[in-house]
Design a protein around this nucleic acid. Sequence first.
DNA 1: TTGAAAGCGCTAACAA
DNA 2: TTGTTAGCGCTTTCAA
Lengths: 343, 343
Amino acid sequence: MAATIKDVAERAGVSLITVSRVINATGYVSAATRAKVQAAIAELQYIPNQMASSLRTRQSSTIALLLPTIAETFWTTIARGVEDEAESRGYSVFLCNTDNDTEKESRYFDVLLGYRVAGVITVPASESASQLHLLHEHRMPFVQIHRKVESVAGDVVRGDSYGGAVALTKHLVDAGARRVAYVGGFRSLLNSRDRVAGYEDALRAAGLEVDPSLIRLGTFEQQTGYAIVRDLLQSGVEPDAIFIANSTLAIGALHALIETGVRIPRDMLVASYYDNSALDDFSPFMSTAIQPTYEMGRLSVRRLFMRIAGASLPPEDLILPNRIMIRNAFDADRESGTALLPA
Amino acid sequence: MAATIKDVAERAGVSLITVSRVINATGYVSAATRAKVQAAIAELQYIPNQMASSLRTRQSSTIALLLPTIAETFWTTIARGVEDEAESRGYSVFLCNTDNDTEKESRYFDVLLGYRVAGVITVPASESASQLHLLHEHRMPFVQIHRKVESVAGDVVRGDSYGGAVALTKHLVDAGARRVAYVGGFRSLLNSRDRVAGYEDALRAAGLEVDPSLIRLGTFEQQTGYAIVRDLLQSGVEPDAIFIANSTLAIGALHALIETGVRIPRDMLVASYYDNSALDDFSPFMSTAIQPTYEMGRLSVRRLFMRIAGASLPPEDLILPNRIMIRNAFDADRESGTALLPA
DNA sequence: TTGAAAGCGCTAACAA
DNA sequence: TTGTTAGCGCTTTCAA
């Protein structure tokens, strides 16, 4: 079948090990021998068998990245960061979708352990029920991104959800809001809890009361954002601003505002987490917190490589600041709820 | 380090091969022995080394999928189809982004050949300059999706671009259009050529002339769609319908129509290829051709497995029909250019 | 500067 | 029903 190192050695009239030395640039090889070997490699179109190499060296130049889905820009941008950083070090990335399904996650962990990948970067499928401990028990180096499994000690790279929520909420209050509603996901994830906490702390710091009737939590779906905002507008709680903790919710929320004729920012100030390019059509009228997804990807790979190299550092919880975009200054020319592409 | 089959054998008091038989369910093993082995596997948390297994069996249970990008739903839906079908056969999928960069594609081919994956499903980075022949020369089974490299014989799975263009163009003409503009990508790709051909043939079949001034080609970017439509509206060629051959272009095109106050479908009939969920906000007023991306993924895997199994079939160019959605019936209640989420 | 021998962890082929 | 031997393709000793 495919050419082996033995075929190359015979063709070049040298021993196996000499070919190996040429391929890996290890040990001494004379220029003449090297040339002969390289010619043989080219003639036979020889590509070294990574399986055999990995088996012998107990090293792999592949890492894995587990994401909830590859259908949203938030995750794919992380993937780009991971790939770019890995590629710059000569590593390939094995990309896996978990669908936030711990069963699927667990199956992937098995596969990846079986392949003896060098390390794993993962967005745990669940913060409570993740099987992340499997990696820990098998001494597989890993770094968590965006979420943090409480029961497993290990490196984490994530955005500053608390700080982002504080910044946006404070901004809304500074712009005059007194009744800021909170629209976000259920508290099952650390980020959600952090964002609620940031929102509440920012209100209190401004001397405002936290009104539970203004805090609305639900699933991470457009329909949920839509339904919550419709209800907020109808239930008489009368918010004068809305902080939306997730961009998928924001799309639904903005549709609800547009549909009911609420003008942003004239009638309602809006600030939102912004992770989804589908929000592009709305963003000019909204202040946003943007997570450094690409950087999160790159930095998690850097951390992973420290672990692969065997560094015995204490686990690090790396929290990266969000980029805050203040954009709800009233603009008379563009007070509608939807934006058009720039000409 | 990690437990090996030898450790399991010693622990269970049997030979290596017996453990192997239990793991792979090959050959005869008594229930009692099997139980002993399984207990040892569980105690040691043994996970078989796939590298060693692949090396010995010359088989891999991994296939690779090369896509231009994972940031667009068109491609990720294909990926889902590939993953689901592969998983149902116990295979893992190695996902790779090429960015339509033939250099990157070529590097991935090398890596994948090095890993001796079982097969490759690929959207060639270029139809003219792809390095696909590398796979062919190394006898690596492969299937092309969506694009077709002319210089390499092999299986292809793609949507019926010609048929889709015919159907949508015919629909516009049947609805009364006489001057149908074509907005699409440059003819460098087979799909683009097929769509132009379908458009032209449908016009001729209806007894209409093909007016070159109505055919506008460009890059696959929103801005291009926007600019082309602005120009179409200003240049005096006076189209009464627009066929858009790509959904990214369609987003820009629709923004241009909305911005200039052209109402769909009252002032202009629009039909478009529809591959991008960002179009959801516009779709109710537009007829669309939808490619069976998920099915393309699944079917390409099925074909690939026939090749992996060694079937000596002639290369197949599998062309799947598009789903055609006719949706531009005039609707007085919703004649604006943007749609809102359903309540 | 080059090579021979051994072995990474697993399984095919044969034997008992 | 279980075990022994050999070897997949490569690289790490050690020796020349």
